[in-house]
Simulated assay, not measured.
Amino acid sequence: MTERITAPGDLGRRIAGRRESLGLDRERLARRAGIDPGYLAYLEETAASPGADTVGRLASALETSTQELLGGTVDLPPGRGRPAALPELEKLDSDECLRLISPGGVGRVAFNDLGGPAILPVNYVLHEGSVIFRTAFGGPLDADLRTGVKGVDFKIAFEVDRIDEANQEGWSVLVRGGLHHAATAGEQAAAAASGVQPWAGGDRELYVRIVPAEITGRRIRRGHGLPDGSPPPGDG
């Protein structure tokens, strides 16, 4: 009897989201996983309960784990797995950093407020070379980050990262620059053109722009040697 999987999260949405992040259409993913494209469409669009074997093949084709695909890690912080045997750390140039963060998503604003160092997550968009996000008037990213001097902005840090636990790889990008609140109607309109939407909802009509002054990044890749330091078979 085939074991059926009941996902604690939205399985179809997770499949589609991961597929799109890898740049795959349904036909290519279906070929990778060895399933019919029509069945893949059914899985993505309905509350289906596929067999454990199907979920396993989809997870492998999507370069992730079944636990991740089923939403079992929703309430867990990333990076809990063991590192690769020979991880390689590389520095990223600014062009690669901008490429990685250009799709937008969730980043973290690091700043000093009246209570000391603080870090807050925000939904952001990279628009015309600047990081744009929305916040609430009177919130922690408003009054506490105004210098009171025209033309002088607070210097803050903004971080974005991606962790691929299945492949034991990941990257992080750090942006440093001035945080500018859109004050005039023209600035508000220009920022609104970015289309950024906060997940938190509510009254978040204050647009904030970070103009990068410095961009750095790092990437962790799996090593290609063996644990004892020797090259893999066929090399050398």
Rank of each mutant, 00 (worst) to 15 (best):
R57Y: 01
S21A: 15
L24M: 12
R19I: 00
L58G: 03
S65W: 08
R19T: 03
R18A: 07
Q67L: 08
E68S: 13
R32F: 07
G38I: 10
Y42P: 00
L43M: 05
A30R: 00
A61S: 12
A52P: 03
A33P: 01
A59D: 10
E27I: 11
Y39D: 05
A47N: 12
A52G: 01
V55G: 06
R32D: 08
G23Q: 10
L58Y: 07
R57N: 02
T46A: 14
T66L: 02
E45S: 15
Y42R: 14
L43D: 08
D25I: 04
A30W: 05
Y42G: 04
R32S: 06
I35C: 08
L58D: 03
D36E: 14
G56C: 01
Y39R: 09
R26M: 04
P37F: 15
T66I: 00
T64K: 03
P50F: 09
Y42V: 09
A33E: 04
Y42K: 12
E20L: 15
L22E: 15
R31Y: 02
G56F: 06
E63A: 11
Q67D: 10
R26L: 08
D53F: 00
E44D: 09
A33G: 05
Q67M: 05
G23I: 12
E63Y: 01
T54D: 02
G38W: 14
L24S: 09
L62C: 09
E20A: 15
A61P: 07
R31E: 12
L24H: 10
S49P: 02
G23N: 11
T66V: 10
L69P: 10
T64Y: 04
P37D: 07
A47F: 04
S65G: 04
E68P: 02
Y42F: 15
D53N: 02
L62M: 13
R28Q: 15
P37T: 10
A41G: 14
E45H: 14
R26H: 09
T64L: 05
I35Y: 09
S49V: 06
A30P: 02
A61F: 08
P37W: 06
S49Y: 01
A30S: 09
A47E: 13
A48L: 05
D53T: 07
R19M: 03
E27S: 12
E63N: 03
E45F: 06
T54K: 00
L22R: 14
A30D: 00
S49L: 02
R32N: 11
A52Y: 02
R26P: 04
A59W: 13
L40N: 08
S21W: 09
S65L: 07
L22K: 10
P37G: 04
T64I: 03
S21Q: 15
L43I: 11
T54R: 05
Y39K: 06
L69N: 14
A41L: 13
E68R: 11
S60H: 08
A47Q: 06
R32M: 12
E45V: 09
L58Q: 07
E27M: 11
L43H: 07
E68G: 02
A33L: 01
E20Y: 12
A61V: 03
R26N: 01
G51W: 04
A48C: 10
A33V: 02
